[in-house]
Structure formats: C-alpha cells, structure tokens
Computed example of a mutant assay.
Amino acid sequence: MTRLLGLMAALVLAVPVAAAELGDDGLHKTDWMRETFKDLRDDLAEAEAEDKRLMLIVEQRGCIYCTRMHEEVFPRPAIADYIRENFFVVQINLHGDTEVTDFDGESLSEKAAARKWGLLFTPSILFLPEEVPEGQSAAEAAVAMMPGAFEAGTTLDLLTWVNEKRYALDTDEDFQRYHARKIAERAAEKQD
C-alpha cells in the first residue's frame, strides 16, 4: 500500500522542473514570489484585486528545509502552477531587517515580525483570509500555517484546502481528515 501511494504521488505531482535561485539575501527566489513594500494590508488588497490568496513564506539563509522545499516540492508543475494561479506570495526573511507593516498597523523589521508572530522554524507559511479583522496581526488572522517542510502531496493538499476555504466549512473535516480523504481518493483512482 505504501509503495502504491508513493508511486501514485510521483505520477500525480510529476518531477520537479527546476529549483529556485538564491538571491543576494541567501533566500530562494521563484517567479511566483512578489516584490512588495511589505505593507501586509496593501499586499492583501493587491491579492484580493487579483482574486488570489495572500501567502507569507518565512525563510532563512542556509535553511536545509527551505532548500528541500525549493528543490523537491515547489518546482513540481502541479504545485508551482497552483501557487502561481491562486496565491499572492510575499517572502519574509526570519533574520531580515526590511520593514514590514503588519495588519495591526505596527511597522517592524522582518525579524521582529517573525518573533511577534511566534515563528521559530523555517520554512513557515502563513495563509491569510480575504479580510483581516482590524487590530489583528498576521499570525492572529491566519487561517492556516504550514510549519516546516512537507512532502509534495501534503503541500498541494494544504494549498487546495486553503484556496477552497475548507477551513470555513461547517463540517468535521479539518485539514488532517481532508488530507487523508485525498490520499484515499488518489489511491482508489490508481486502482481503477
């Protein structure tokens, strides 16, 4: 069964095409990341104008898990295309000094914002709702957070779960149950 799931995931998600390049700050850069002034309220408005979801990806120089995501997971066509089509991605440097304006109006460095949001590990991905209640920080408003590196199937399922707003449905299917159901569906499709 495990072998079948592994084979199925490889076929569904395809092979990575190319890894992201490193920028001068030592962080991976992709074509789906946006260069912004890091005023999260403006970034959210721009994401909404493009009918996309705002995604904050917090990374650091030398992070082996960030490298793994950028070399093995994000380049897969199904994932890269899904991000490009559905998400407005802003990169935050865990140790950076660039100013970030949080949703609550506080302006602080990237590293201070990461501490404020309680982020200790990289990569960490915060997914924001279409509207953030006044006075909330990014961490308080986030509808989901991906803490660390995950396999391609889990990553794509989380992106889909967030994009389809499944967190807001009045059901007992949280992300873990959704992900388990998607794994079973993919396995059943392979058996047919």
Rank of each mutant, 00 (worst) to 15 (best):
L94F: 15
A80W: 07
D43C: 02
G96R: 07
I64D: 15
R34N: 12
I64A: 14
D97W: 10
E50F: 12
H95D: 15
A78G: 15
E21Q: 08
I79E: 06
T30W: 02
E110R: 02
V90A: 03
D51G: 08
D39Y: 01
R76G: 09
R76N: 10
H95E: 13
C66A: 11
A14Q: 14
R53E: 06
F88D: 10
E48R: 06
S107K: 06
D104A: 01
E106Y: 07
A78E: 14
K116T: 09
G62P: 13
N86L: 05
A45T: 06
M33I: 06
G26Y: 11
Q91L: 04
C66H: 14
E72G: 07
D104Y: 02
E59A: 11
E72V: 07
V90F: 02
K52P: 08
I57W: 02
D39W: 00
V58I: 15
R61G: 14
H28C: 12
D104N: 04
T30H: 04
V90P: 03
I64P: 15
E50C: 11
P16W: 04
R76Q: 11
D97F: 12
M55S: 03
E85A: 14
C63W: 15
V89S: 08
A47D: 06
V100N: 00
R41W: 00
T101P: 01
S107R: 08
R53D: 05
L94R: 15
E46G: 01
S109K: 06
K52H: 10
F87G: 03
D43K: 01
S107Y: 06
D39G: 04
G96Y: 08
Q60F: 12
V58Q: 09
V89E: 06
K111W: 09
D24K: 11
C66I: 14
P16D: 06
M69Y: 10
G62H: 15
L22Q: 13
E59F: 09
K116A: 05
G105H: 00
G105M: 00
Q91H: 03
E71I: 12
D102Y: 03
A112C: 08
A80T: 11
F88C: 10
A18Y: 01
I92R: 08
D97N: 11
L94G: 13
E50L: 13
C66E: 12
L44W: 01
A19V: 03
E71M: 13
V73E: 11
D39M: 01
G23V: 14
E21W: 02
